[in-house]
Design a protein around this nucleic acid. Structure first.
Lengths: 239, 239
DNA sequence: CTAAAAATTTGCAGGAACTACAAATAGAAT
DNA sequence: ATTCTATTTGTAGTTCCTGCAAATTTTTAG
């Protein structure tokens, strides 16, 4: 058989080492969120590595920073670094956002009164905005990533990974609304495009938000985004 | 000063070695396209490496193919491989499409009678479709990339690199149409979203085209794409 | 509190990607 | 034929990253 055990392909965000979970039958994503010493330490280590990486990257440029430097700066062994992040870039790019809760998910699919846009916007913006608590780090990371093409590429990839999830949600919503894939073969394409539209608009709204001084609340952000989309899709330039 | 000479960051598509071009004042992209022996050999080598890479990737899986294997298979030294492609993935992802000609560019900006969509679609589809001559290779590459997450990521990055260029074109078109950035601050965002919309729709149209038997001509492709966008932007689900 | 169990960190060896440098080879120009 | 320029290659070395097993730390159970 010789099955490849190269599972952790690129960016893991999970525990550094779950190999000993023998009797963890099918615990899957049963994240242990208790406030235990071990968990606190893990979070601290992860954060410490991230900070070191970004600070060094900002000071010397990502290309000129070695993993060894990051490890020294964060007092951790190289092996541990890779246990946490899998690859060098992992320490630079944004952490995986927490997925919407089961309730948020359900609410969106059943669409209680909200439009697809409204629901999707809510979902995406909570996912993308509210997760970040450390503004300082967030901004530093943002600066570094946007001045380093290779990192920007990774970041985009990570984002589109998340977007795939929303595509799935939209399909569920469509199905809930009675639209089936058999009847509309382009349904999946449609979902993809809707996500691209919303997150595209949102991305630039966010950029504005980040460039400004993080004023503006969610409502006005949504307002801006909606207007932009309206304007674009409503007007001239279509065949 | 100590300026970094790490220029060829990621994917070069240009000549393997232009370092001796001393008196090439500012030749920039003055590609020597003459049908000379040297040029033919270069093209042959490049193609040979590409074929070897993709064939090996398809047979053993990209992760299990080493650059050395590719080099052996294409009878080239490892150093030459990196001269051509800069990194391992370079041999797998699609080559950079030729940019629109100056005329195409001008026509789009001046928009002789066509809508922004129509013009953009024409531009993008010629750029993305007509470039590929070797269907065999194209399909093999497509298969490999879409079964290898890491490669897909690269491919997407390369595409979005090209899209940036179109964003620039649209901005020019907007300006030509009398819309200035000062009056509409969101102009750039708008351009980005228009590109996302069209190329998003086109991407899936292309996928269909590739999945099918490459039947369907450009017109019907454009038709499908336009309808999809119409449908999405026209209907329900906006706030 | 103590001992066993589980998770985390670490060191070490090694493979593979990639770069700098300079020499060797092949094609183009005169 | 000869000189000039572009391409290929080899060598040595750095860095990223992985597998493995031992050492350490935290949790759990008694």
């Amino acid at each position: 058989m010789s099955v490849k055990t190269t599972q952790s392909s690129s960016e893991d965000e999970s525990l550094p080492n779950a190999q000993h979970a023998q009797h963890a039958q099918n615990a899957q994503h049963a994240q242990d969120t208790r406030d235990t010493l071990r968990n606190r330490k893990r979070a601290a280590t992860r954060l410490s590595i991230r900070r070191a990486a970004i600070e060094l990257g900002l000071r010397h440029g990502h290309e000129n920073v070695t993993v060894e430097m990051i490890c020294t700066a964060s007092s951790v062994s190289q092996r541990t670094f890779f246990n946490y992040f899998g690859n060098k870039e992992g320490a630079y790019v944004s952490p995986r956002r927490p997925l919407p809760t089961a309730k948020q998910h359900r609410d969106f699919i059943e669409g209680g009164g909200t439009s697809v846009f409204g629901g999707l916007f809510g979902l995406i913006s909570t996912t993308f905005i509210e997760a970040e608590t450390d503004l300082e780090l967030f901004q530093a990371r943002h600066r570094l990533i946007h001045q380093t093409p290779g990192l920007l590429e990774r970041e985009k990839a990570k984002i589109s990974e998340t977007e795939e999830i929303f595509v799935g949600y939209i399909l569920e919503r469509f199905r809930h609304d009675g639209r089936s894939t058999t009847e509309t073969p382009d349904l999946e394409d449609e979902a993809h495009i809707v996500v691209a539209l919303v997150s595209g608009a949102l991305r630039f709204a966010l950029q504005k938000w980040a460039a400004g001084n993080f004023t503006a609340n969610r409502e006005s952000l949504m307002q801006t985004t909606a207007e932009l989309i309206q304007h674009i899709t409503a007007n001239e330039h279509w065949p």
